[in-house]
Each structure stands twice: as structure tokens, then as C-alpha cells.
Design a protein around this nucleic acid. Structure first.
Lengths: 226, 226
DNA sequence: CGGCGGCGTCAGGGTTGCGTCAAGGACGAT
DNA sequence: ATCGTCCTTGACGCAACCCTGACGCCGCCG
């Protein structure tokens, strides 16, 4: 099911949107200010964000930047401002679309469908499995196989693995890892990483004490190598 | 270079668009009707299509479907119609965005940038690797390779290397180096530089005592040369 | 010719960061 | 209510890293 995060400080707009979305089979969360929006986005991982620019606590463009710091989730901006400048700023900050209030519900939903459709697996159905040494990771099916048997991963383990695999070969900073897996407010609890990296290695590495695929770069972060 | 296909039957609009696009470094083709649009899209493989719906020979939605049959290239629709129905139809047929005439050039260009940005390689873009003598530096992956083997750098070593490489060929003052790597309050501890430059040279230079890439400018700073 | 400042090298010691283990607590299922 | 799973948190040993001081070399200038 597609999950939508609605961010607006006017309750009636939020209500109208949420009702319409749920009626059409979407799952909908809502937030009334920027801080809540960033928190919810991290916690719930929506498939698309509908964002009003006129929030009480922070500039809408800042919210866009906050999201774009760690995710490519589509963002559709709502705004009462018609000014061209506003639009350009929001779009260049990373927004995907810009709709001016008052808006037609049909149009918004159509734009939402377009945004979701675009974000779908690029290939269009092919699985993307990554093979490494003695095990394979299937991103689409959320499955890990080793020596012919499926490996059971806890949600957190899987999430961590997913982030690493999506950046195969590249270093992922510990702060980035923590924020992508545990949320924006977890930037320093590096002990979480140590514990969960150990579990991943125990479950996936041939020799957990001499990892060949989950490599730690001291002081910086971790790297997944095929 | 990014290639844009402009489809519209009004010559002055086409002209205005093409001029603006070329002025901003885009490559631009144009078509005046649907048949030409489909032909040109197939021949030139544009990175994004700007499509007017009011074409003389066929319905704009048909053009969208014709394109979507074989490509996911972003399509930005232009139209004089404000009706919600038109927008929904176009978007659901596979358009990525819908702009009503008259439109602001700034806004259209911003939407175009957004569309192109989205379509970029999902993985995270091209690598920027710098090659020098016997080793390569990959800024994105934070990797250094020498003679086919990965070189392990400590955080401070890497940080220093990064600053130097980002200023390839130019002199970087010692004060600037110290402040960028160790923090604003470190402006005079030049011995740090000596120690860490030595380690970089030992790890990367073919002959560390006669450096060819990490060059000392006595009394001033250091310079990285390819 | 002698002094001096800047640079490169080396090695030791304090500190930080990492891996590991285990216990406690929240939550849902049986 | 009991069990099991998962997440969190603390403690400990160990290795790696960062800082620091000492020494010698070279070029410049008096």
C-alpha cells in the first residue's frame, strides 16, 4: 500500500486530504509543522510527501532540504503563494512538483499518482538482487539467502543492510547510517551500529571476525563490498 | 549535455523556448506536430520532452501514450486549458508535470530541472574520481586505490587528502588546511601538517622522499598535482 | 662561516573508537 | 500470565589513531 505523509498547519486541509486519500486506498499520516514532518518521515518512510510551505516553525524550503539530505522520496509542494520565485526555490531545493492553493482535489491526486508512478522500481518488475561472496540480498523481496537457506533478519538488521547495499562500494558515514535507520535525532549513538553490524556479520559473513563484505572504516563509517 | 525536445505548433513559443534553453546550455530540438514529435523522440532520444497538448494532427494524450510505449523520458505538458479533466488525463497517461499557459519561463525551467534531476541514475550519480600518477582518489566512495589495492586512510589523513584534491593544482595555505581539517581554532600548529603530509606521501607516493604529487611550498602551504 | 627557521622523520603515550558479551525491558503472540 | 523476540544499554579488553616532543637536515640570511 502506498503511504502518504501530509504536512499542513490548517486542520481542515489536512482532514480533507487524509479523507480523500484513505477513500482511495492510500495510507495517510499527517504533521502540522516542519519538525513533526521530519520526524514522521524518518519513522514511517512514506512513499510520497505532500508539503505545505507555510509552516509555523520553519521555512518550507528548509523542510525540503532536511528530507533531501537522506531520501529521494517524491515531494509535492502546496502553497498559497503564486510567486514564481517561491516555486523556483522549492523546486530547486528538491521538490518534485508545486501546486498552488486553492487546488482541485482531482488534480492533486493525479499529480500524486504521477509522482508515485515515477518513483517505482525503474526497471518495472525485475528484481534487483545483489550477490556477494557466500550470500545474496534481494532488495525487492526483502530476502537474504545464504548457502541455499533463507536467513532471518530482524527489521532493524534488514534496514541497516538495505542502506548499506543500496550504497554498495561507497562509504556510508556513521551519522548517515544512524539517521537513515533510527531517525534524524540519532546521530551519535554509534554503539547501535557496533551491535547491529556485529549481528549482520555473524549472520552473513563466512568468518565474522574477519569480515570481507561489511568493512569498517574507523572513525568514519561502514562500507559494503561485493 | 542535456537534450530537450520542444513540441508546440506556435512558432513564437517554440522560438522563445529554444532560445532560452540554448542560452542555459541545453541542447534543443523542436517539432510542430505529434507525428514529428514521435519521430524526433525516437531519433534523438531527448532527456526530457516539453509537450503542448493542442497539436494540429493528433490529440496530445495520444502523443504521451506513444512515448510511454517505449520510454520513461520525463514529459512536461504545456496547455492553454485550465480544466481539471485535461490535467488528470494527461498526468494519468504518463505525463510528469503539467504547466498552464501563459507560463513563467523561470518556473518552466525550474520544473524542467526537477524532472531531469529525478531521472538521473538512481544510484546516486556519476563518480568523481581523480587520477594521479600511480593512484586514484574516489571522492564519492571515499576510496583510494593504488596498484590495484585499496589503501587504508585514517579519518584525518582522508580529510586532509580531500581538501587538497578539491583544490587540485592550486596552492592551499597552511592556515587554511589546518582550519579546514582540525577546526577554526587550529591556525598555527603546522607540525600536524608535517606529520600527516608525511603519512600521505608514505601511503601514496611512489618515492615518498621525492614527492611528485604532494608538493611543499615552503613557508606558504601545500599543493596537490595530478 | 655560524645561526636560525622551516621541514621531514621517528617513536612513545594518552585517548578514542571498535568488537564482544550479557543483562534488562518493551512488545506481541501463544 | 508466560514465553519468545527484538531493541536498548552498559561494561570490558584491545587495537588504532592522534598528539607531542626530539632530532637531523637543508636553505637562507646575517
Amino acid at each position: 500500500m502506498t503511504r502518504v505523509l501530509v504536512v499542513d498547519d490548517e486542520p481542515q486541509i489536512v482532514r480533507a486530504l487524509v479523507i480523500n486519500l484513505k477513500a482511495r486506498g492510500y495510507e495517510a499520516d499527517s504533521a502540522a509543522d516542519g519538525a513533526a514532518a521530519l520526524r514522521l518521515a524518518a519513522a514511517r518512510h512514506p512513499d510520497v510527501v505532500v508539503l505545505d510551505l507555510g509552516l509555523p516553525d520553519m521555512d518550507g524550503v528548509e523542510v525540503i532540504r532536511g528530507l533531501r539530505g537522506w531520501t529521494r522520496t517524491p515531494i509535492i509542494v502546496l502553497s498559497a503563494r503564486h510567486s514564481s520565485d517561491e516555486k523556483v526555490q522549492a523546486l530547486d531545493a528538491g521538490a518534485d512538483d508545486y501546486v498552488t492553493k486553492p487546488f482541485g482535489m482531482d488534480e492533486l491526486l493525479a499529480r500524486l499518482r504521477a509522482a508515485v508512478r515515477r518513483a517505482e522500481p525503474a526497471g518495472g518488475g525485475e528484481e534487483d538482487v545483489v550477490e556477494a561472496g557466500g550470500f545474496t540480498v534481494d532488495l525487492a523481496a526483502k530476502k537474504v539467502n545464504r548457502d541455499g537457506r533463507d536467513v532471518r533478519l530482524t527489521p532493524t538488521e534488514w534496514h541497516l543492510l538495505e542502506v548499506l547495499v543500496r550504497h554498495t562500494g561507497r562509504l556510508v558515514g556513521q551519522k548517515q547510517l544512524l539517521q537513515e535507520v533510527w531517525g534524524p535525532s540519532y546521530g551519535t549513538e554509534t554503539n547501535y551500529l557496533r551491535v547491529y553490524m556485529a549481528q549482520l556479520r555473524r549472520k552473513l559473513e563466512a568468518d565474522p571476525s574477519h569480515p570481507r563484505h561489511f568493512i569498517t572504516e574507523p572513525g568514519m563509517g561502514y562500507r559494503f563490498e561485493k
